[in-house]
């Protein structure tokens, strides 16, 4: 097994961006609250209002 391929001297030194990225990936932060739908009872009144305000059915065109 050619282990000299893995020897650090043959690889350029890690940059600050690389070590910062690794630190960020190792960190396990809390996930943001899920975007899954949550029950919102107050939305019912809004929906009823929108239904009342919506335009009515289009009338059949009169034959000319």
């Amino acid at each position: 097994m050619p282990t000299q391929l893995l020897v650090p001297e043959t690889l350029p030194a890690a940059t600050a961006a690389e070590t910062t990225t690794i630190t960020a990936l190792m960190a396990q932060t809390e996930a943001p609250l899920s975007g899954a739908p949550v029950p919102a009872p107050e939305a019912g009144a809004v929906l009823i209002l929108l239904a009342l305000l919506s335009p009515g059915e289009p009338k059949e065109p009169r034959e000319k």
Binding site: M1, T3, L6, V7, P8, L11, A13, A14, A16, E18, T19, T20, I22, T23, M26, A27, Q28
Partner: peptide
């Protein structure tokens, strides 16, 4: 042994002493 060397190489090549946290 080759696997152990990979791990040791990874630790040596990416030292986190300066920017590391208590967790790292």
């Amino acid at each position: 042994p080759a696997d152990r060397e990979v791990l040791a190489t990874a630790l040596a090549h990416y030292p986190l002493d300066a920017g590391g946290t208590a967790e790292t």
